[in-house]
Design a protein around this nucleic acid. Structure first.
Length: 255
DNA sequence: ATGGTGGGGAACCCA
């Protein structure tokens, strides 16, 4: 089972990239973030014609998540307990008996801001939801744009980013609380080197200069993690014309 | 300390 995640930064602009990538990568599951569109204009037909079923939760202008899969995603959840939130950042569905939880984690702006407090509160509530889902479903994959670089290996310049947004101790502790529920960072399960990134700022020519962070993650339960056969970041789409600022991350399981 | 670029949508918000 091949599972992928990609923050597309507008599915309207990036639809051709997604279709192109699906055609060659052929994942069983692709979780998208930042579709930035309402459900009534979601490009259902184009995705179906590519051989994928899809469920989605979108809104105007911001956020928006979708799960594309070769099998029909079922038992869809878009809202979680104690989080009465118009922002469409959460989508859970079952694909081939694996519970897929697609997250577009709050960016958080900067430590000390209201948005940062919202990020930590949001992560707390999502962590409780993941804990609940883990009791209901045996096999769980939590993936998406976490907007957290797990540790300094995931940062091109850890000194410059020290305690900056995406790299603060509080955010990393929040991620660790999810991992402590019994998940592995599937990329780290196979690779311990630094210098692998999934996002580069559009500004200051960040991609060409290697100014990246690894903030797009695929977490798998400890048991599923033993079946990981490959985990990697596909940087190719970041080189395409008019790219997303994120590139797809992929994990393959013998599952 | 600031601002750079890109998407959305039509003046700024968000990242």
């Amino acid at each position: 089972m091949k599972i992928a995640s990609w923050n597309v930064n507008s599915l309207k602009v990036r639809l051709d990239h997604v279709l192109q990538w699906l055609d060659t990568a052929q994942p069983d599951v692709l979780a998208l973030q930042e579709t930035k569109m309402t459900d009534d204009v979601f490009p259902l037909e184009a995705i179906r014609q590519a051989g994928y079923q899809v469920v989605f939760s979108g809104q105007k202008t911001y956020n928006g998540v979708a799960i594309l899969a070769k099998s029909q995603p079922e038992d869809v959840i878009t809202d979680i307990p104690d989080l009465d939130d118009p922002q469409r950042r959460i989508l859970a569905a079952t694909v081939d008996d694996v519970r897929i939880i697609d997250l577009y984690v709050v960016n958080g702006s900067a430590p000390g801001t209201e948005k940062f407090a919202y990020k930590l509160d949001w992560l707390n509530k999502v962590t409780a939801f993941i804990e609940q889902q883990k009791t209901e479903y045996e096999d769980v994959v939590v993936l998406g744009d976490f907007n957290i670089a797990p540790d300094d290996r995931d940062v091109h310049d850890p000194v410059k980013w020290h305690e900056k947004i995406l790299c603060t101790t509080e955010e990393r502790q929040a991620l660790n609380r999810i991992l402590d529920l019994g998940f592995q960072d599937s990329f780290r399960y196979l690779h311990d080197e630094d210098g692998f990134f999934s996002w580069w700022d559009y500004r200051m020519n960040g991609f060409a200069r290697g100014l990246g962070l690894r903030i797009d993650l695929i977490l798998s339960t400890d048991e599923m993690s033993e079946a990981i056969t490959a985990s990697y970041i596909d940087v190719e789409p970041r080189k395409w014309e008019r790219p997303s600022d994120h590139t797809p991350v992929v994990t393959e399981f013998d599952w």
